[in-house]
Design a binder for these strands. Sequence first.
DNA 1: CTCTTAACCTGGACGC
DNA 2: TGCGTCCAGGTTAAGA
Length: 298
Amino acid sequence: MPELPEVETIRRDLQRHAVGRRIEDFIIRWPRTFVGTAAAAAKLRGKEIERIDRRGKYLLLRLSGGTTLSLHLRMSGRLRAAPAATAVLDHERARVLLDDGAAIVFTDPRKFGRIAPLSSAAASRLDASLGIEPLDPGFSATALRRSLAGTRRAVKSVLLDQARIAGIGNIYADEALHAAGIHPAAPAGALSEEEIARLAAAIPTVLSAAIRHRGTTFQMYRDGQGKKGRYAYRLMVYGRGGLPCRRCGTELSSTRLGQRTTVWCSSCQPRSAARRSQAPSRPAAKAPRSRRPGHSKS
DNA sequence: CTCTTAACCTGGACGC
DNA sequence: TGCGTCCAGGTTAAGA
C-alpha cells in the first residue's frame, strides 16, 4: 500500500524518535516478517540507529557497525513510534525497543511486509537493483527518458517497475500520468520528447504534493504517528473510475492494465493524439537489445 | 523480452 | 446476521 510519499512521511516521523537511539531489543512476533535467523536478530541489540534513509519504497535504518536494517511495508504494513510499554497491538509483527523507553512498532495484517538486516554489500546490491529516485536532484527529463527507453511496454507498467524508477505504485502512477496528459497504455519507449518532459515534471510534482499532505490514506495507510494522510482528497483519478474528471468533467475510464486497476481521463489523456508526430519507424526487425545503464539486477 | 497467473495473507465492502 | 465474492497501496517466481 505505501508508496514513496507514504514511506517518506514515515521516515521523517521515525527519524525524530529513532536517530541517535540504541536498539535495546528486537522482538519478532511473526517469524516470517523477519528475513534472517534469531541470531541475526539478536545481533541488532546494542547497535545505534545513525540515520534513516529511504530508497524507493524501502526504509533503511543505518546502524552502527555497517549494518542496514531494511523495512518494506508492502500492502498493509505500518510503522509507528510508541512507548515501549505499549501493549501488543493488533497484527503486530515486530517491535524495536529503543534505549530511551520508546519503541518502533511494526503492524501488518496481511503479513507481506519484510524486515531484513543487510550487510553493506547486500545494501549496495539492493540499491543497485532499484531505478532512479524521482525526488533526487539527478532526476530529469533526460534521466527519465533513459529509464523508459528500450521497451514497448505500457508506460504505466514501466512506471511501476522499481528497477527502472523507484517508489511509484499504483496510485501515483495513475496520478502522474493524468497530470502529464499521457495515456497509461502508451508504449513507454515511444513517448515524444514533449511527453517525457511533461511526465518528468509531473512525477516529482505529484509525489511532493503527496508528501506535503502526509500521504494518501485509502484504507490501511497511517503515518508514523498513526494518523491518516490527507492526499486522498486531492487525487485526480485513482479510485475515481466512473466519476467526472476533476479537470475537464469527462467521465473517467477504468480498466485493468498489467493486472492493476487503472483509471484515466480519455479526454485529458488521449490514446494517440500526442504521438502522431513521431516517425512510424517499424518495430525494427531485430534491434540489438542494448541494456540501459542503471538497471543492473544485481 | 513480455505477459499472465499464482502466491503470499487478511480485512473491508458489497450483494443476497 | 451471515455467507460468498471481489477487491486492495506490493513483490516475486514460474510458465507460456
